[in-house]
Design a protein around this nucleic acid. Structure first.
Lengths: 119, 119
DNA sequence: ATTAAACTGAACCATATGGTTCAGTATTAC
DNA sequence: GTAATACTGAACCATATGGTTCAGTTTAAT
C-alpha cells in the first residue's frame, strides 16, 4: 500500500536518492523488465535488485506483477506530481526571499545616490 | 564544497527525504535563523540540528556564516533546478510510455470494431 | 573576573540501508 | 522425472542516519 501522508515525501525522495534506483526508473521508462534483467543491467544479485524494486514499489514509482516464475516491473502510477509541486513551491519561496533582498539592495543604492549628491 | 557529479542527486534527494530538513528549508524561506532557533522550532538538541544543517549545506540548499558566537543559516544558491529537471524528464518519459499504451489500446479497439462488423 | 550563551566535536546508541550468501520454492524446459 | 530458471526469505555484514549526552571553546553580558 502506497502512503499519502507526510511520510510520503520521505519515502519517495529517499527512493530517488539512489543512483541505481533512478537508473531502474529510466530503464523501465524505455521498457518493462524482469528482476533478472534489471539485476543484470546493474550488475547486482537478484536479491539486491529485488530490494531496490521493493523500495520503488513502496514509493509507488513502480508496480510489479508475477506471472509464472518471472516478476515483471513497470512504471507505477506515481508521476511525482506532489514531489514536483513541493520543489516548485520551494523554488517560489526561494525566489520571493531573494526578491526581498533585491529590494533592500535597490533601496541602499537609492539612498547612496541621494547621499552622494551635494545637499 | 558542493558536488555536481552523479552523486549530486544522491545528496540532494537524500537531504529532501527528511521531514525536519524540509521544515528547516521552509522556515529559512521565511527568515534566516540561527542553529538555536531552528533547534527550538523542531524540539531537538543543538547538536542534532547542527547535523541536519550540515546535510542541507552539503546539498547546497543552505549556507551558513558564523559571526560572533552565533551561526546564521540562510537559503543557499541551489534552487533545485537540476532536481526539478530530473523529475520533469521522468514525468515526460512516463507520459510517453503511457501514450504508447494508449495507442495500443486504441489499435485494439479499432480492430475489435472492425471484427464486430460483418465482413 | 565570572558567568551564561551558542556552538562544536567526540563518543555512543538504535535503527536503516545497500549489499552479500545460502537455502529454499515454484515454474518451465528437456 | 530431472534439471535449470527465476525468484524469495533469512541471516549476515559494513556503513550511514538520526538522534542523544558530555565535555569542551569562544564570545558576550554583568
Amino acid at each position: 500500500m502506497v502512503q499519502f501522508n507526510a511520510q510520503h515525501f520521505d519515502t519517495s525522495f529517499a527512493a530517488l536518492s539512489d543512483a541505481t534506483r533512478r537508473g531502474v526508473l529510466e530503464q523501465l521508462a524505455r521498457q518493462d523488465a524482469s528482476i533478472s534483467e534489471l539485476a543484470e543491467t546493474f550488475e547486482m544479485t537478484l536479491t539486491g535488485m529485488k530490494k531496490h524494486v521493493s523500495v520503488l514499489e513502496q514509493a509507488g514509482l513502480v508496480v510489479t506483477e508475477k506471472v509464472g516464475r518471472v516478476r515483471t516491473c513497470r512504471l507505477g502510477v506515481s508521476r511525482l506530481e506532489q514531489e514536483a509541486a513541493w520543489i516548485e513551491r520551494y523554488r517560489q519561496m526561494w525566489a520571493a526571499r531573494f526578491n526581498e533582498l533585491d529590494k533592500v539592495v535597490e533601496e541602499l543604492k537609492r539612498r547612496e545616490k541621494a547621499n552622494g549628491r551635494p545637499s
